[in-house]
């Protein structure tokens, strides 16, 4: 048999947000129109991570609106307040709270007006899916749109904003001790590989990724981030090598800098772990980078399990793996 299989585990924890006393701000405006359409002006830029969807979901849930009536204007410097970059696994964690605050205040304004309309106390009312209910009642007493129209008619405020500061205290400069981040993500991954001992080629057969999401606001998007993270980890472990030649990049094209294709990335089984985080919106926290970090150690451990050799340089290219096997053979330490 020239092909040997192995299993490996990688685990990590990772700071969510910017930490170390760096500015870590989220902010959003929100407004409901007469027809019940709610516009959220969110500073968080969506490059595919799904933060616009998360913003819409948080706003809908907190206001009590139907998500189809939420319009998100995102990352437009002419209209949205600054919410910092979508990086550091922070967007849901930080911007989610800012939107939650804005939506919560808008909800309050609406319920205040509705209480006046129906001669009851604000606390006796609730809203969901675009309608206002007396608490625990089965049928609505009004739509949010009717209430919003009433607020406008009375010259009331049907808009709000939220601002959230997730900045943390810095660590002790002398000892580097302290709690650098507002929260931490936790993740473990299991990789199964097959190593061809004649060529050094490593094939990843399966990855199981367990990631602490706090609360998965959008499970499909969370899985997408986890699977994408694992794919990047596969690239880091096996393919992606940036070569500098006296400062000149020699891997400046996708022909030379290899990223994983659909043939290289295996099935990725997602296990979303939900441990409520009191600092995040609905208990949620960032998962993007945490989903990437454990993949490479899991794969390298799986290679060790398969062939008994530690590969300590990434990527574990066929050349490197084959050379390590040959060296072990020469020392009489490799059993074919």
């Amino acid at each position: 048999m020239t092909k040997k299989r192995g299993l490996g585990v990688g685990s990590m924890f990772y700071g969510i947000g910017y930490g170390f006393n760096r500015a870590d701000i989220g902010s959003a405006y929100i407004e409901m129109a007469d027809d019940g359409t709610t516009t959220v002006y969110s500073g968080a830029c969506d490059m595919g991570q799904g933060i616009m969807t998360v913003v819409a979901q948080v706003a809908a849930e907190v206001v009590g609106a139907n998500i189809d009536t939420i319009r998100v204007v995102a990352a437009d410097t002419t209209s949205t307040p600054d919410a910092g970059p979508t990086s550091g696994s922070r967007a849901t964690f930080v911007q989610g709270i800012a939107v939650h605050e804005a939506a919560s205040d808008l909800h309050d304004q609406l319920m205040q007006t509705a209480a006046g309309m129906f001669e009851c106390e604000k606390d006796e009312l609730e809203a969901h899916n675009g309608d206002v209910y007396l608490k625990d009642a089965n049928s609505p007493i009004a739509s949010l749109a009717e209430v919003a129209a009433r607020v406008h008619l009375l010259g009331g405020r049907c808009a709000s904003w939220g601002w959230h500061d997730n900045s943390t205290a810095d660590v002790d400069p002398a000892t580097s001790q302290g709690d650098a981040y507002a929260s931490y993500g936790w993740a473990s991954q299991l990789a199964e590989v097959e190593v061809d001992t004649e060529t050094g080629h490593v094939k990843v057969l399966k990855i199981v990724s367990a990631t602490d999401a706090g609360k998965a606001i959008n499970p499909v998007a969370v899985e997408g981030q986890i699977q994408g993270g694992a794919a990047m980890g596969v690239g880091y472990a096996l393919y992606e090598q940036h070569i500098l030649d006296e400062g000149v990049p020699r891997t400046d094209s996708l022909a030379f800098y290899l990223v994983p294709t659909s043939m290289d990335v295996p099935e990725i089984q997602c296990e979303i772990v939900e441990v409520y985080d009191p600092k995040g919106p609905f208990g949620a926290k960032g998962i993007a980078e945490p989903a990437t970090v454990p993949t490479t150690p899991a794969i390298l451990n799986a290679i060790y399990d398969a062939i008994g050799i530690r590969i300590t340089d990434t990527p574990a290219t066929p050349e490197r793996v084959f050379q390590a096997i040959q060296e072990a053979r020469a020392r009489g330490e490799f059993k074919d």
Binding site: E223, G224, I226, Q227, G228, A231, S262, M263, V265, I268
Partner: peptide, 20 residues
């Protein structure tokens, strides 16, 4: 066959799972 057909299309976000 699906994975082979899209092997020339690089995706950096999804890990291909949900595309497949």
């Amino acid at each position: 066959e699906i994975r082979f057909a899209i092997a020339g299309n690089i995706c950096r976000c999804t890990g291909y799972s949900k595309i497949v």
